[in-house]
Amino acid sequence: MNIFRLTGDLSHLAAIIILLLKIWKSRSCAGISGKSQILFAMVFTTRYLDLLTAYISLYNTSMKIIYIGCSYATVYLIYAKFKATYDGNHDTFRVEFLVVPVGGLSFLVNHDFSPLEILWTFSIYLEAVAILPQLFMISKTGEAETITTHYLFFLGLYRALYLINWVWRFYFEGFFDMIAIVAGVVQTILYCDFFYLYVTKVLKGKKLSLPA
């Protein structure tokens, strides 16, 4: 464990908690893509099946349980409890165009052709593109609530910190996982446009609005 990975995990946890609290306190999921949240729930489910087979540490196990619990709670709030506030007209990204290619790729490019490893690979590839429905929804509505931009900032920051963690681990431990690194680079690149808007607008107190 190194500082980049720890702050990355805490940034990820912060994003998940910010979103859950935003929906719970405002009793509304306006502007939130339910499709992205379903994809994230799929990412955690397929990645953390090793909860049943391997114990790594209390930190590892508790974080996985928190991530899975919060992501399913968020999906529940969006599609059940606050369903009336779900903006389905703008959450129209065709997720099958993500899940099918990612599913196929995880069978073709993986470290080991075993069920757990293929599911892990699927979760890595899926996480790289899971935010697309959310970014697409913001481009369609042309704006995002400030709290939503903070959620996206921490979510994008977490994988960027993981990239630094992988540089660190390669240099000090000789460890590297090409699949996680390539997917992590793609994932972080997808946030670049948002990061630019976040820094130039939101951090200056303006609302994030895209030229519609």
């Binding site: 990975r5 990820h12 790594i56 470290h111 080991d112 490893e117 090409m178």
Partner: peptide, 10 residues
């Protein structure tokens, strides 16, 4: 290609 070390990252 790394051997499938135990996945200790989240």
């Amino acid at each position: 290609d790394t051997e499938t070390t135990e996945k200790d990252e989240l």
